[in-house]
Design a protein around this nucleic acid. Structure first.
Lengths: 208, 208, 208, 208
DNA sequence: GATGAATGAGCCTTCATTCAT
DNA sequence: TATGAATGAAGGCTCATTCAT
């Protein structure tokens, strides 16, 4: 697991750094969602953050750092949401079902943010992108582990070789609720969507 | 079905317009793939197209038009590829299997281009984006029709209500081969990927 | 009196040249009035003239030539209007009164065009501007001559030294009906304006 | 009376804004006078102002703003000049005479600038043009008031209805010293011009 | 630590003019 | 004669970043 890339700051006090960066993230998320990364200016970010452009640059080194901060925070949110839905002391199959439903709920709640990552990730500098993709991989491996556990306790039938792929499938089927919303939301409610996608996955893994 | 948005040109001869726009598309696709839309300049596009910046603007009205042209051409390519794999005179189930495999092959061949659409579609002006999403929907309905046919000939079991969703699933499972390639290609060959994804879909739809 | 500057043309037939240039003038006057010289493009001029940009350049050498053509044509119109109001066989004073009224009527009829000259004359190349100013001077000397005649027949009292200045005054007082119309037309009718300005001049020149 | 249109600036300090805009005006006036508004580039303006193009745009929003700034400053100059020549405690007739002479002197001193307004005013955006014309009207009403005062104290004979027109006449007769200088300056000295124009107006208003 | 004025490379786009057909 | 595709210099403007206060 890759560790978070640390962005240098001119400021010493770590508490202050965190506080200011939270302000930056909060402001930038909104801006990026509504106008996109490229059409948002650093001036706008600093203004929305509540301080001057000069101060902004005390806490980041480039505009792309803001994007990285934002992507990282969003992933953090997703992971937090995921961990909350984790039930223990049950079979892998039951755990998986809960995890998928929870994941879909998180995707729904964070649609704008998840979409943001999908759309702007490519604007990150190579190095930062790797960190963000690593985070994505982490989310995937969250499901990998559940799958593996189910395989071990016999509640799920899946070849070891395809565990990773199935985990990717689960994640993508969840994320598509955001990046295909222009069509999906017109035809299905979240409940319907959860129902059918969950059973699709589960049946594949438990049938007969 | 939405019709292609027509981009005004200063030039009268339609043959010439098509020829020049083909040059533009060819040049721009490469550039957008390697540097992204925002970091590609119009000057670069014109140079790579083989003519002057002035000439470029005889055939488009704005840089965004080039992006639209490119997205449209890529979708065209996908649709062409899809149509080629269509086998007739067989059951819906058989047809579906062939279509999925063909689609995945197309995704693999056109990965860079498909990825490009995923990443830059949001940079299109609202109107153009609608056209491009309509094209995406068309591709989805290509699978919808096969599913419906299978349902009618009894070879596929699926509720009418979920045909559209399943079609989306198929398309997304195909496209993820491009936008998750940073992980998938490390762990699976195209053959493996095709095999497992196809059977995942098919089993869901045929098991009794 | 300076002679009209002749603009070279690629075309031989003088009749054709005149015909085409008339088309150009007619089209350009409208465009210049509504958008101004700088904001009008040569393409627009050629289109409004009814032929291609290539053809336009067969009859002129530069965009500024069009402006010259237009200014010249407008002055021609003013002079023609002036000559029509000239009554003979009367005293200078009577003639002057008629000329002023006629001039004001012409200014009113041609306001847009006269204003155009005022606003765009400075965009002419030095040489062309001299010709146009010479035309303006010609119009002035039209009044000079009437004044001189009145002085000679005793119907007007004016020092020879100030004949030219008075002629300028008359012309400017007429032209201001166009370039100050944003205020004058709100407060006065043409009739009122004619009445008061004519009597202002006349009283100055006839009172004993 | 319309109030000055305020141009937004990225800079906060009002003192600095004023200082920089004064630099801009000073530089632009010279450039506009010698090359005209359209042929002057923003780069030239910034260079002549003593700072970079980026800085220029910290103080204006568009090139047209510079023109507005310039026109406004010129009018300011004219008004200042006018107010200086105002003598009090005398009859309207005496006051008028002094005002006309003063106005003509100002016109002579500021010929290039006054001419500039005449030639470039039409390049202003609609809104800005209204402000500038309002300033012109203000100058006119300066004379209106003197005329009205003269009428009231019995020193000038003029119908209320024609006060505005006469004021316009005075202003135009003054401004023509600039826009007809190509002829007037060849034939008359400023003294002669002042003498004859003043007496022309005065005689009309005081005779018999 | 915070501020915000200054910078200037660089971008998209326009348009007068040319010239091969 | 007429056409119109091609050209490319030039222009207005933006915006990430720096640095003196």
């Amino acid at each position: 697991m890759e560790h978070r890339k640390s962005i240098p700051s001119m400021v010493k006090d770590p508490k202050l750094i965190e506080k200011r960066r939270d302000q930056i993230i909060e402001a930038a998320v909104e801006l990026f969602i509504s106008k996109g990364f490229h059409k948002t200016t650093t001036r706008e970010i600093s203004r929305a953050s509540g301080f001057s452009i000069g101060t902004l640059y005390e806490y980041i080194e480039s505009k792309e750092d803001v994007l990285y901060l934002v992507c990282d925070a969003i992933h953090e949110g997703v992971e937090k949401g995921l961990k909350e839905v984790l039930v223990n002391g049950v079979s892998g199959a039951v755990m998986l079902k809960a995890a998928i439903k929870g994941f879909l709920r998180v995707m729904d709640e964070m649609q704008d943010r998840v979409l943001l990552i999908y759309q702007e990730i490519k604007s990150l500098p190579k190095e930062a992108m790797k960190y963000v993709l690593a985070k994505e991989e982490e989310i995937t491996s969250f499901f990998e582990e559940i799958l593996r556990r189910g395989r071990e306790d016999g509640s799920l039938k899946i070849d070891e070789k395809y565990i990773k792929l199935m985990a990717h499938n689960i994640v993508v089927l969840g994320e598509m609720w955001t990046f295909r919303r222009w069509s999906l939301h017109k035809h299905y409610t979240l409940e319907e969507y959860m129902e059918i996608q969950t059973s699709l996955i589960l049946r594949e893994l438990t049938e007969e």
